[in-house]
Design a protein around this nucleic acid. Structure first.
Lengths: 195, 195
DNA sequence: CCTACCGATCGGTAGG
DNA sequence: CCTACCGATCGGTAGG
């Protein structure tokens, strides 16, 4: 019995993984349930034994990633470190999420607007809250003279957007390693904040 | 006769402007010709007196913006200035494009993948070329010891991605002015390259 | 997990 | 610029 359940769970996880891959490659609106089914090797109708709807898949992918990000931010906030260390940790965390969980992360940052009306407002509110809390960390660093004064809103936007842009690297010929990319992300995005 | 032509041209330009607005807001795939027609005040079928297809509109919007960017880069390359000044000019140019031509610029950076097979390969090749030439400017600056050594590929990706992220500011409550945003973009993205 | 099929909606055309 | 309409395709359901 438990074998049956875990098998079903694994199958569902596999479907969600493939859905993330396709949402990322074609966009949520252009990816079709028929293509998803074909890539898995079943008929489109059979998908609905594992999921409720196309939108439910998007919601699960996006909120899953969003929760991971929120958790990490809370950890960071608790720690007794300087603003510089905290921001560096945030840059590294997001970079690694994009580099090692690129499908789900890309879907979150690129397809969230297709979320259904029952989850979209909450996602937007959460995102705004996340940005505000990153801004607060930077502002504290500026107030304490640990960081150079650059508008926190712009810094946060740039960090998050730059990570989003790593999608291009991921799809490209990869002439550089993930580690190199991460180090240079830190150098560039943190460099202007240091003395 | 010439009045008729210019009227037609103006109408077409207006349709393209509205299309850009809707491609940006809903995404190319989700924006419909029927909604576009409704927003203009005509029937969907009537659109085809001004344009050939939905894809043609996308192509015109995207390649129009891409050409503006290419032209600016060529100007920059000709000028006899330091790498730092050139990169600053590039940051300011792209920031202004996003801030003052947000519809078309957003469509270019977010919807280019829906370009038809007759233009997509060229667009990708052009984009790669554009990045390579920005990288070359930075590399020259590093070689001449005018810039701190940060991987040019990452710097270029971050600059372009950060500008893309300004879309969020544009849609938001706008608690900061466009000028403030531009100055802080320069401070953050160029700061790490300076000594 | 499949066959069969639905209502809706899409981009686009014919003909005026 | 409109009426009328088409073929294709979509997400999803019924019933087994």
């Amino acid at each position: 019995m438990s074998v049956t359940i875990s098998k079903k769970t694994a199958r569902r996880a596999m479907i969600l993984k493939m859905a993330a891959k396709m949402f990322r490659e074609y966009g949520f609106a252009s990816a079709t349930m028929r293509d998803l089914a074909k890539n898995i090797g079943i008929e489109a109708a059979s998908l609905y034994n594992h999921i409720k709807s196309k939108n439910e898949m998007l919601e699960e992918i996006v909120t899953g990633m969003a929760n991971d990000c929120k958790e990490h931010l809370e950890d960071i906030e608790q720690k007794n470190t300087t603003a510089l260390v905290k921001i560096e940790s945030l840059i590294r965390f997001h970079t690694q999420m994009m580099l090692y969980h690129s499908e789900e992360y890309s879907v979150m940052v690129n397809e969230w607007m297709h979320l259904g009306p029952s989850v979209l407002p909450q996602f937007i509110a959460d995102r705004r809250d996340y940005v505000k809390r990153m801004e607060a960390i930077i502002q504290k660093g500026i107030d304490g003279n640990w960081l150079k004064p650059i508008m926190p809103y712009v810094v946060v936007l740039n960090i998050l957007s730059s990570v989003r842009g790593l999608e291009f690297w991921h799809k490209s010929s990869k002439t550089h390693t993930a580690e190199e990319m991460e180090e240079n992300m830190v150098k560039h995005l943190l460099g202007a904040l240091k003395d």
